[in-house]
Nucleic acid binder design. Structure first.
Length: 212
DNA sequence: CTAATGATGTCCT
DNA sequence: GGACATCATTAGA
């Protein structure tokens, strides 16, 4: 019997780079939630929208107040997950970037569902939602992939992790990337609120909002 | 200890 | 376009 093509490991080096470079590498890559032997089906999607939160001086970043119990993992090595709860209900998944000691992360804002759509739909609790909307927003990604704060610290570059990254297939064209200001951070003030640190795959139907 | 608030999503008008 | 659900986290008393 045939098996799907092997997934390509996502190199940690790409995440150790500066965060905007890392963001461009992450767009088009896959987010994979492992299935299990009993009932949970594997979930896979293509990452199409991210936001960068860069360094200790970024007033929109959780790292702005220095290391705390919540954000501590942002100060550690690249490739680990940072998951936080917003508005008391939505779990948001970040990938830690840059060198150990420098706080930075990429918020995964949208994913195009590829496999395990029924499991994603169950996670969302919205039986009639359109396929392309299953993970179109940071809270939607968390719900669709069954991610919560207990995933913080998980190594997303380890192929054995229950939640991990995988590179796009070699024959897949590199995506065209568009940028704009980050969403929902007006409180940070200028210049942070205008920095074009939201990056997305142009033309994806799964973006959380349109991006010109 | 108390109080304010948020890297959002959904339903309403 | 606007209301609001709902709680971990943080700052401050």
């Amino acid at each position: 019997m045939t098996r799907p093509p092997p997934e390509l490991r996502f190199p940690r080096d790409l995440l150790a780079a500066d965060s905007l470079t890392a963001a461009r590498a992450l767009l088009g890559a896959r987010l994979v939630r492992a299935g299990d032997a009993t009932e949970r089906r594997r979930r896979v999607g293509r990452i199409v929208e991210v936001e960068a939160y860069i360094g200790p001086d970024d007033r929109a970043s959780h790292a702005r107040m220095g290391p705390t119990p919540r954000n501590r993992v942002m100060f550690g090595p690249p490739g680990l997950a940072y998951v936080y709860l917003v508005y008391g209900m939505h779990h948001c998944l970040n990938v830690v970037t840059e060198a150990d000691g420098r706080p930075a992360a990429l918020l995964i804002r949208a994913v195009e569902p590829e496999d395990g759509l029924d499991a994603m739909r169950a996670g969302r609790g919205r039986p009639t939602i359109a396929d392309h909307r299953l993970a179109s927003g940071p809270g939607c990604v968390g719900a669709a992939f069954g991610v919560d704060r207990s995933f913080t610290g998980m190594d997303l570059c380890d192929p054995v992790s229950p939640l991990r990254l995988a590179s796009a297939p070699d024959d897949e064209p590199a995506p065209v990337i568009v940028t704009g200001p980050r969403i929902g951070i007006a409180y940070a003030g200028e210049p942070w609120s205008s920095r074009p640190w939201r990056l997305a795959v142009s033309g994806s139907p799964s973006l959380s909002r349109r991006l010109p």
